[in-house]
């Protein structure tokens, strides 16, 4: 079941988990905007560090590191591509007189590419903080209360509900087919993909049957009886949520101010390398 472990939300409770998903989402959006505003290394490092306390308070370090590791390959690609292209046409980068040939110029180039990579990492970071600390149930509720059509919210929470069930089913089918002599790890790449067909077909057939039964149950419980559906739970913004929103707004204002009126020098210049 290891493949699907990452998809299964673990019920933990922390001050971060208890925040309203809407407030957290606003925070993530602000982080996103600020990250896009800057392409210098210093503010992006600040942005990266600002979110660390959230990760630790929520106690999701391990999952968080895992998601960053997942983004490693893309990050490296971004770095390499930026570095190579900036080397080929370095025009516009502060402190570089083409062609790139002195050590300070190489450092500058390095810093520039690194900053763009860090921007990507910051985006990944803030989204993973959001998804690692928001229960799917809360998220579904937040969607509902943000006037997203109920059908969509229902589909979302139901999908999450059935992930462990389908994972278990996939495992059972895999074991059954292996017992009949199916060898999954044999052959070349194409062959290996083909090996999975005897697992996918029963899995899909079962899923369709399951969805029919679900539909029948939903109908039997008055699905679509009224336009005005009520809800057992409501999300209300509480004090910590307002604090988070205020802080986000403050950061956004500050960032816009810095961007417009304060030139941010490259780290290489500040450290006088």
């Amino acid at each position: 079941m290891s493949v699907f472990d990452g998809l299964r939300f673990r019920m933990v409770s922390s001050p971060i988990h208890r925040l309203d998903p809407r407030a957290k989402f606003f925070f993530v959006c602000v982080m996103f905007v600020i990250a896009v505003l800057f392409n210098q290394l210093l503010p992006l490092i600040v942005l990266f560090l600002i979110q660390m306390p959230l990760v630790f308070v929520a106690g999701v370090q391990r999952e968080w590191i895992r998601s960053l590791r997942g983004a490693l390959f893309l990050a490296v690609m971004i770095f390499v591509i930026n570095f190579v292209f900036a080397y080929l046409s370095p025009g516009g980068i502060q402190g570089i007189e083409p062609p790139v040939d002195t050590l300070p110029e190489y450092l500058m180039l390095f810093e520039n590419s690194f900053a763009l990579t860090l921007r990507f990492v910051v985006l990944i970071e803030s989204f993973s903080v959001f998804f690692l600390t928001t229960s799917p149930d809360h998220l579904g509720l937040a969607l509902e209360q943000s006037h997203v059509p109920y059908e969509f919210c229902f589909a979302f929470t139901t999908a999450v509900r059935f992930v462990p069930v389908l994972a278990e089913e996939a495992q059972t089918i895999m074991d059954a087919q292996k017992a009949r002599g199916l060898e999954l790890e044999r052959g070349n790449f194409i062959k290996r993909i083909r090996n999975y067909i005897p697992i996918l077909i029963p899995l899909i057939v079962n899923a369709i049957r399951r969805s029919l039964e679900l539909a029948e149950t939903m109908e039997s419980r008055a699905w679509g009886a009224t336009e005005k559906r009520t809800n057992l739970y409501v999300l209300r913004l509480k004090k910590p949520d307002y604090v988070l929103v205020m802080m986000s707004i403050l950061m956004l204002v500050l960032a816009v101010y810095v961007r417009l009126f304060l030139p941010v020098p490259p780290l290489v210049v500040i450290l006088q390398i």
């Binding site: 799917p136 929470t157 419980r221 009886a225 009520t230």
Partner: peptide
Amino acid sequence: ENQLFALFVEKDVAFGLENLGVPR
């Protein structure tokens, strides 16, 4: 298994009533 689709038991039990628009 195929009659429960919410993430919590309580929410499932409420499902029918929510559909009918019963007050909270």
